[in-house]
Design a protein around this nucleic acid. Sequence first.
DNA 1: GAGTCACGAGTTTTT
DNA 2: CTCGTGACTC
Length: 749
Amino acid sequence: MHTAEKIHDQASGTNAMDAPYLTSLNEPQRAAVSQTEGPVLVLAGAGTGKTRVLTTRLAHILRSNKAFPGEVLAVTFTNKAAQEMKERVSHLLGGAPVDGMWLGTFHALAARMLRRHAELVGLNSNFTILDPDDQNRLMKQLMENEGIDHKKWAPKAMIAMVDRWKDKGQRPQDLSADEGGEAAGGRLVALYGQYQQRLRVLNACDFGELLLHMITIFRDPQNADVLGEYQRRFKYILVDEYQDTNVAQYMWLRLMAKSTDPERPSNICCVGDDDQSIYGWRGAEVGNILKFEKDFPGATIVRLEENYRSTGHILAAANGVIRNNEGRLGKSLFTSGDHGDKLIVRGLWDGEAEARWVGEEIEQLQNKGWSLSQMAVLIRAGFQTREFEERFIKLGLSYKVIGGPRFYERMEIRDALAYFRVIAQPADDLALERIINTPKRGIGASTVQTLYAYGRSKGISLHDAIMDLTQTDELKPKMKASLMKLLDDFIRWRDQMGVMKHTDLAAQVLDESGYMAMWQSSKEVDAPGRLENLKELIAGMEEFENMAEFLEHIALVMENRDGHKAESISIMTLHAAKGLEFDAVFLPGWEEGLFPSQRSMDESGLRGLEEERRLAYVGITRARKRSFISFAANRRMYGSWVNAIPSRFVDELPKDHVEVQSDQGLYNAGRSTHWDSSGSSVASRRSATVTDRKVVSENGTEFSRGDKVFHDKFGDGVIINIDGHKLDIAFNRGGKKRVMDSFVEKITE
DNA sequence: GAGTCACGAGTTTTT
DNA sequence: CTCGTGACTC
Ligand SMILES: Nc1ncnc2c1ncn2[C@@H]1O[C@H](COP(=O)(O)OP(=O)(O)OP(=O)(O)O)[C@@H](O)[C@H]1O
């Protein structure tokens, strides 16, 4: 034990070493908890209690008076995990709520800091946090100004690239002009620069910028006192899911974790598992966890090997899959529990049959007394929810889609929020633009263009541009009156902000703006529902102190409506399931192209495939007792039927630990037989034909399934099957035809 | 400037 | 197939 710790213990007069919570840990876990001083890395596989260690460690630090709550920085991956950790800690400490901790996601914590120091980077402390939709719209505007074709270069894709740069901590000035490659006609870096400028004018930040601004502040020698304050404040730093931190997050952490006294290394504890790194596409760097020892010399590495979550068969199956990845740190895992039941692997005819089967299995488990809340369907991509939802509705099974369509993404909610945002922060152009003509005020697109053009020429916001132009005669009188009315409304509402209760103000705004009336008089079928949602929105605001707090919550916490629905099965993506556990887990859609995702492999090759495999590992290891893996031989894609072959991950499951239960021998047949969908005119019906994955035509073009092609006579289509040089193509104009590869051209976007 | 229709693109994964 | 965008007309 470190000397410092002893001193603390004596000083506080508390002997925390016999605290009750320590008895619920195994030996290495306890070591990781009680070694509070110096850098510690807990590197361990799934279900070994990493999160439990981190939570207990936090409780231990507080309980032994080593730090006040406000002196601990604890970073979690999701807001939900932060919430849970807060509850667990307070529970471990006897139940009283623990307030004042710096506990949250990277973004939530950075936002909290940035509100305090906004002026150091030229922002006002009431800056707006843009959501992804705002980002896209802003990018689109910039591209239109620059005359860049936003159909050829999707603004969303451009923003994705900008976000990746931000993940790496790269600002426009850190990039050479050609770093964007062909994107946006070779001008992406320039666009990035303009985008940053606009953020400043809008007094706004996007997600990545929250961290980048804090890094900028910390690095500026002029602000040494600010950095010093945080370095001294945070006596202990704890980070969960360290394998999925990106470069910017890493830099931010390192700046704060830098010890002010070389004699006393920083007390940072990170936990993670390189095999569970699944956010590479978002800039996460597994390298961060690999170099921990180098970054923090003298670090203690704790390995946990006992898995407390899953049965032997589940662990063995997961290990069998992940073993196929190269360059792993390698960890051993064992369980003292039973083998349990083998994993079920089942091939089915199509997605509908798959959903039906899953439904049956769920009902059987229910009949055995298992709880729906302890079951989950884990999918690869959002669109897969549909067939399960349809099936569950038919069966009357209660379910919740985690991370599905979110409440705040609904049109009417976004509109209402836009009003609130403009009240809170007048320079929020994107919000103002959204509602400037909603409800209809006769302010059309061309007027907005005029206003923007003026604002751009003066370097001011839309709001200020309106202020200026309504003082002149440049606008038509009608337009001018309309704009002045709106401006006056906002000024009046803004004056009320400090006076009126925020929920009352919200109701008043929606009423006086005519927004409520717009829906009340609407004949649309969903108008009543929208009004209902608006009411709910205002009711939900009650939980918050004021408007600013409410808006902050909306921006940072992506919350889900039915998240609390008890006794229902969860449907969510594998990504969203990270860190969770269920008695029974269903893993549908294990087909090549879907899982592993074709796109991931096309974009990132082997790296992409390995990340997909880690996703499979994460999925399997979410299960405590039962795991059901399935694949379908036929999938509907863009309305036409596509036949699918089982995922390579199915083959990687060790035979001894799975029970294969496939319909009509689909397990093997799926990969060698062409399956006709019921009655549709697939050309190869006459015989079971061989499906090839790829073919290279005489003239050297490579065709794969899913490729878009053009045929002189039939037009555009998609390759659904390949048999030597013969391609089965679903043509957009209708009909599926079998043609020779030499007759079609590949369309490359 | 507002409303209607047709075409086109899309399916990863999210703080 | 389904949603959203953009072009066209009144
Ligand atoms: N010492 C222990 N004794 C009994 N149960 C434990 C112990 N440690 C952890 N567990 C249980 O094991 C399960 C997994 O723990 P936890 O979620 O902390 O693991 P993890 O390593 O974070 O998992 P993952 O990386 O897969 O998300 C939990 O149900 C937890 O309560």
